[in-house]
């Protein structure tokens, strides 16, 4: 796309000529003024400020008062044009205010997320433990003791969570999870499992071919969006192949609707071959 390239050139030119950063002193000042505004809102108006007020925790209120003092000092430094000192004070004020927020922390927000994290990890543990049982059977290894121990750890984690000790619950759960993971690793190390392709019926194979045909269509679509060059001759050839593919596909769909899946499969195979040709023409390496 020529326009895009020219644009990039222009951008480059603009970049060289007018770097967006203003002279150092000016940047600091502008950024600093933004920061002053930000820190003020953070301490006085933000949801964080409200949280500190509502919590009514003396420690949090004290931290906020300190933040306020630091902010006032920063204002003084700014008036004296001591910009670096002002910036340092604003940073400290922000940190103090963050501390205040933490001290006034709404534990529910965090607890809710940790609860979800726990549940997800528990689901993973269950899936892995089930897999461990099956792999043990497959390998003729007696894992009964291990599985019993894991079940015990799981129960303990769940009861800790119910009693509200989420932190400890997670530690116990993670212990079981790591052990399961490690045991699977030991049993499966070096294995290659083959998922063979066997169709139960011609109908199933037809569905497979339909998916394969869709896939190649979609790939063409993706690649046409990624291509930067424009080539009319190529575009025409691709369109011709796609048109043939479309025709074969509608024939295939007709055959399938008449329950003649074998014909449908053959036609879809032909259709997909056309699409693969189109893909290769557009410069994509389709193996096979």
């Amino acid at each position: 796309m020529d326009t895009r390239r020219t644009l990039l050139c222009l951008l480059g030119a603009a970049w060289v000529l007018f770097p967006p950063a203003l002279p150092a002193q000016e940047v600091d000042r502008a950024a600093l003024l933004l920061q002053v505004d930000f820190v003020h809102k953070l301490i006085e108006e933000s949801s964080a400020a409200k949280q500190v007020e509502e919590a009514g925790i003396p420690e949090a209120a004290e931290l906020r008062a300190t933040a306020r003092e630091l902010y006032e000092q920063a204002q003084q430094e700014l008036k004296a044009e001591a910009l670096p000192a002002a910036k340092a004070l604003l940073d400290s004020a922000t940190k103090k205010m963050f501390e205040a927020v933490r001290a006034a922390g709404k534990d529910e927000v965090v607890a809710e997320k940790r609860g979800v994290d726990f549940d997800n990890r528990l689901a993973s543990l269950d899936a892995l433990v089930k897999a461990l049982g099956e792999i043990s059977k497959e390998k003729g290894k007696d894992s009964a003791a291990l599985l019993a121990q894991l079940a015990e750890q799981r129960a303990s984690a769940v009861s800790l969570r119910t009693s509200g000790d989420l932190g400890k619950a997670r530690t116990v759960l993670d212990g079981a999870y790591q052990q399961t993971r490690q045991s699977i690793e030991e049993l499966r190390r070096g294995d290659t499992l083959v998922r063979s392709l066997n169709f139960a019926s011609k109908k199933e194979e037809y569905a497979y071919e339909l998916d394969r045909n869709d896939t190649h269509r979609m790939l063409l679509e993706v690649l046409s969006k990624e291509r930067s060059g424009e080539d009319k001759g190529l575009e025409e050839m691709v369109q011709k192949l796609v048109a043939t593919a479309n025709e074969k596909r509608s024939q295939a769909e007709h055959e399938a609707s008449m329950q003649r899946f074998e014909n449908g499969i053959a036609l879809l195979e032909e259709a997909t071959t056309q699409l693969i040709r189109a893909l290769r023409l557009s410069g994509t390496y389709i193996p096979g």
Binding site: R181, Q182, I184, E185, R188, R189, G190, D191, T192, L193, V194, R195, S196, L197, E205, Y208, E209, R212, E269, I286, P287, G288
Partner: peptide
């Protein structure tokens, strides 16, 4: 990390090479 050294091969139809999923 403790990587799991285990491959899963998924057969596909036709001349397209099969998929190797490396754990």
């Amino acid at each position: 990390p403790i990587p799991l050294d285990m491959n899963i091969v998924r057969e596909v139809k036709g001349s397209m090479p099969d998929v190797v999923y490396p754990h």
